[in-house]
Every structure is written in structure tokens, then in C-alpha cells.
Amino acid sequence: MISKLSKTLLTLLLCSTAAAETFVFTAIPDADETRLNARFSKVADYLEQQLGVAVKYVPVKSYAAAVSAFRNDQVQLAWFGGLTGVQARRLTPGSAAIAQGAEDPEFKSYFIAHHSTGLINGAQLSENIKGMTFTFGSKSSTSGRLMPEYYLQQQFQQSPEQLFSRVGFSGNHSRTIALVQSGSYQLGALNYQVWLKELAAGKVDLDKVSIIWTTPHYPDYQWTVRGDVDKRWGEGFKQKVKQALLDMKNPELLNAFPRKAFVPASNKDYQAIEDTARAIGLLD
């Protein structure tokens, strides 16, 4: 029984091209990692029904692992952030962004602060943040690292290391809230969606932590598919995948992302992200 159970888990966690007939997708672990399986296996069922091929979801442990799995053809479809999508498409010639959340063309980040800093919400960041401690989310996060770093540079003409007394990487957006709320870091920046979700779930104590600045809009998350899927699952498969995503209307499914709906996207929607990443030195 042990081996059977562990095999079940293993096949869920690990996969490779040998199972070519199964279409596999993943999502970057940007927030609530627990119950990922439960949340995304429903999406897998939906896609299976729409596409008429076996579809499987595999969880990954880090942003980089999601990109690696996509590049290595262990997954053929992925829900990436802006930056991870750019990384993945650069490493996987022929792959394309096909859909994004309705919210994603106008995504934003929140800068948050511990109450002891005395900072309040404003139209731009206060000069007083200089010398405080600051945490990003994951190193490859668009809303938790890339864009916040970009806007900091824009306003202060300094890198975060020069600006702050300490710069950390919490690992994910939920953790950023926890670390700023506990006062471990004075400031943090994160995905606005995760903030709203945690706030609704009652995990944010507004007496301890609050928003001090909202960034301008930028494009973020998207679905990216490998270029060779038509060859392997038949002509027009990529289009079918795209349509299935755009047709996803069930709020329960959409909530896994969490998005209101999916809308079409293309690689060039993310040119700005790529340019920003290059300007900051996250891409060569």
C-alpha cells in the first residue's frame, strides 16, 4: 500500500515526456500553496472535458521550478507571472502567451508598512522610507519584486540595496504580509490580489500593517503554451486550449487564480515586462 500511495503522489508531483498523451500544466506557487492540488485538479478536469485529452496538474515548489518544468517539456501549459512567462518564453522557442486574466492588463502592487513606521497611504512613496528594512516576495516575482524594484528606482534613482538598510526576499506574497505584520520587516511590496484575498480571509490586521502606496498599472500573469503542442495533439490544439481558457466561466474554477475571467493575450503584451527586467538586470 505504501508504494502504491507514494507512487500516486509521485506521479502527481513528477512527470516527464514519456506520458506524451497526457497534457500537463502547472502554476507558479505565488500564494496559498496548500490545497493546490484540490484547487487545480478541478481546472484539470474542466480542461480534460473541453480538450478531449487527458489533462493533469502538477504542483511545483518555486517560480524557477515552474519555468524549468516548462522548458524541459514536463509541462506544456503554465500559469506564469509576467516575469516568469518572459523567462520561460525566452528559454523555450516557439512558445506563446495565449490568455491572461481580465485583471492582468492592469495589474498593480501594493507597498505596505508596519504601523510603527508612522507611514500613511499617499500619492507617492514617502522620503522617510530611506534606511528602513524592506522585503520583496519571491526573487522572480513580477508584482512582488520586478515592478516594485522598478518603481523604487524611478522615484529614488537608487537600487533597493542602496535605499534600504536591509532587503529580504520573503518567498511569497502571503509571507510578505506576515513578515511586515509581525514587524520583522518595516516595509514590503506585494501582489494586490493576494492582499485583497488575505484581507477578506481575515488574516490581515489593519492596526499593524497598511498600504502606503499603490503602483501604476502593468501587465502581469498569463497562460503560456509550448509551441509544439499542435504537432503532438493535432492541428488546432493550441487554439482549442486558448478557447477553453477563454470559455472558463465557472467562478469556482476562476477563483483558483483568482480572476474574474480570462481574455486573449500575446507575447508582445509582455514586451514592457521584458524591457523592465533587462533595465533592472534580471535578464541578460
Binding site: 500500500m1 505504501i2 500511495l5 507514494s6 500516486t8 503522489l9 509521485l10 508596519h114 510603527s116 528594512t133 536591509r166 506576515a178 505584520q181 509581525s182 514587524g183 520583522s184 490586521d205 499593524k208
Partner: peptide
């Protein structure tokens, strides 16, 4: 540098004294 660690720390300590197990099959597999 931390000024108000106690809430999170209390949650951590509370968790430590009230451990819960993973679902049985996941636990055995792990």
C-alpha cells in the same frame, strides 16, 4: 530590529503545542 514579533511567535508556539497530522495517505507517502 523586530518590534512586535509576539503575535506571529505566539501563533508559532501555539502550533508547536497543538500539532496536526497530514492526511494519512500523504503522510505515509512522504
Amino acid at each position: 530590529s523586530n518590534r512586535s514579533p509576539w503575535q506571529e511567535f505566539a501563533a508559532m508556539a501555539g502550533g508547536f503545542f497543538q500539532p496536526t497530522l497530514l492526511p494519512f495517505d500523504e503522510l505515509i507517502a512522504a
